[in-house]
Structures are given as structure tokens and as C-alpha cells.
């Protein structure tokens, strides 16, 4: 589950240790350059009808100058962050409830498992019919996506808290409330953060798709418009922006995660 996190930690550690460990980063850069070169070669040779790197760069410049790119980013980010914040804010207490009280688990778990089987996007038609076409259905779908992935992780975190730690707290005189606040919550933090990361990933994936279906703004909407006009460079700019923003958000969360779980013993 946090295999990815471990690898990255190791990379940064080795990177800062000595010059001899620089090559991975160098190779990353080289790989990137090669990718661009291949893209350029393929498009320059007219093997496929796609815009080349230069064309896309020019379009990006235009979209940045007329402010449209930022309007789109802002619209998409606002949706994601609102839905995501609401989803996580509900998922954490519900996950704790499920992990701590057997009755709550028995009541809630079937629903969570059931709704997890429905792709959030499949809910869009229903959301549009019942909530109209403005922000509400999109935010709702994102909320659902992040809630479902985060609630399961939180619940897993609570039920996998080491029994001995709970016993250790009990023999030191802790009652249920204290055990919950001082043991269960800190011990579940790593699980919750993994859930939050997965939640953000699925929220981001969902928002773009939701905008493709029904929106007047946002990166997904822009692509959908560009598709009507066969405007491939704009599609490329949107796609690349989506990738970069997703990556940035993930890295930000990863850094937070590392800071909050410094106490964890990690595999070398």
C-alpha cells in the first residue's frame, strides 16, 4: 500500500547523500527529453495527425495570456477541493465509527461496499436529474468518490490498531475515551493519509470526467469544447495541465504524510 511512498523516500534519501547517487534524477530528465523528442519526431514526420510539442507550447502560451487556462484550473480545482474536503471530513468520523463500534460497522459497511462497486461517474445522470446542472451534481460526485475511498482506509486503520498498544494504554489507566484519542487516532493516521491520497486521486479523476459530461467551465469542459472544434493543441494543453496538477497535489500530500508519520519504522 505504501510501497510507492517508501520507494520515493529512499530515492530522496540517497539523492541527498552523495553525488554518486545523482544518476536516477539525471535519467529521469533524459527520459523526459527523449519522450519529447520522440513526440516531436513522430509529429514532424506526420506519422500521426497530432500537434507537435511546439504547437502545444504556443497554444499554452495563448491560453495563459488570455487567462482562460487559469479560469479552467480554478473552476476544476474548486470543485475538486470542495468535494474532496467534504468527503474526507465525513469519511474520517464515519470510518472511526465503523472501526470502533461493531453495530456501526454492521449498519454502514454493506452500504459502503455496495456504493464502492458503482463507479462515481455512473451516478452523474442521477445527480443531474435530481440536483440540476450547476455545481451541485459535480461536487456531489467528487464528494462520493473521495468519501468512499477514504472511509474504507480509515476503517481499516482503526481495526488494525495493534491490540497490545490498546492493552498497554489500559493497564496504564486509560479509559475508552483516552484510548481513542491517544492511541487509536494516532495509530490510524498513516492509514487515513493513504486513504486521503487515494481519495484525492479519485476525486481528480472524477472531476475531469464529470466536466466532460456536464459543465460550463473547467479543464474537462475545455477539452470537450476543443473536441467539437477539432482543436487538438488545446486538448493537449488540458491533458498536460491535468497531469501536472494531479502530480503536484499528490506530492504535496506525500510530503505531509511523511512529516506526520515520521515515527513509523520503514523498511529500508
Amino acid at each position: 500500500m505504501n510501497g510507492a511512498a517508501t520507494t520515493v523516500t529512499d530515492e530522496t534519501e540517497t539523492r541527498s547523500r552523495s553525488v554518486a547517487d545523482l544518476p536516477p534524477l539525471l535519467i529521469n530528465v533524459v527520459a523526459f527529453a527523449i519522450g519529447i523528442a520522440i513526440w516531436w519526431a513522430i509529429t514532424a514526420a506526420k506519422l500521426v495527425v497530432l500537434p507537435g510539442p511546439y504547437e502545444v507550447l504556443v497554444r499554452a502560451g495563448e491560453l495563459i495570456r488570455n487567462g482562460q487556462l487559469f479560469t479552467d484550473i480554478f473552476a476544476s480545482l474548486r470543485r475538486v477541493l470542495t468535494g474532496f474536503a467534504l468527503g474526507v471530513a465525513l469519511a474520517i468520523p464515519v470510518g472511526f465509527l465503523m472501526g470502533w463500534y461493531k453495530v456501526a460497522r454492521a449498519l454502514i459497511e454493506p452500504y459502503v461496499q455496495f456504493f464502492r462497486m458503482i463507479p462515481p461517474l455512473a451516478v452523474i445522470p442521477l445527480a443531474i436529474v435530481t440536483m440540476g446542472i450547476d455545481e451541485a451534481p459535480k461536487i456531489f460526485v467528487i464528494f462520493l468518490a473521495s468519501f468512499l475511498s477514504c472511509v474504507v482506509a480509515t476503517y481499516q486503520g482503526v481495526i488494525s490498531v495493534d491490540r497490545t498498544l490498546i492493552n498497554a494504554a489500559r493497564v496504564l489507566g486509560a479509559r475508552d475515551g483516552t484510548i481513542f484519542a491517544r492511541v487509536v487516532i494516532p495509530a490510524s493516521v498513516p492509514f487515513i493519509l493513504v486513504g486521503v491520497r487515494i481519495g484525492l486521486g479519485s476525486a481528480w479523476a472524477t472531476v475531469v470526467a464529470a466536466e466532460l459530461i456536464a459543465a460550463q467551465s473547467g479543464l474537462g469542459f475545455r477539452m470537450q469544447q476543443a473536441q467539437l472544434y477539432y482543436d487538438l493543441p488545446t486538448i493537449f494543453v488540458s491533458l498536460i495541465t491535468i497531469g501536472i496538477l494531479g502530480l503536484l497535489m499528490d506530492r504535496l500530500l506525500q510530503a505531509t504524510e511523511r512529516r506526520l508519520t515520521q515515527w513509523q519504522e520503514r523498511a529500508q
Binding site: N167, R170, V171, G173, R182
Partner: peptide
């Protein structure tokens, strides 16, 4: 139930990994 007059030491140490040595000792 457990009581503070009976101290328990577990085989697996059972230290709270997110707390420092001092915070662990001060837990009770």
C-alpha cells in the same frame, strides 16, 4: 479490569511509536 497498581510489561514492548521515550513514560 486493569488498574494502575498492577503494572504490565509486554514481550513486544508495546511502546507508543509516535511518542518519544519521555512521552511514553509520562503517558500514565
Amino acid at each position: 479490569g486493569p488498574g494502575p497498581e498492577r503494572g504490565v510489561i509486554f514481550q513486544q514492548y508495546a511502546l507508543f511509536p509516535w511518542l518519544t521515550v519521555r512521552q511514553n513514560v509520562e503517558f500514565g
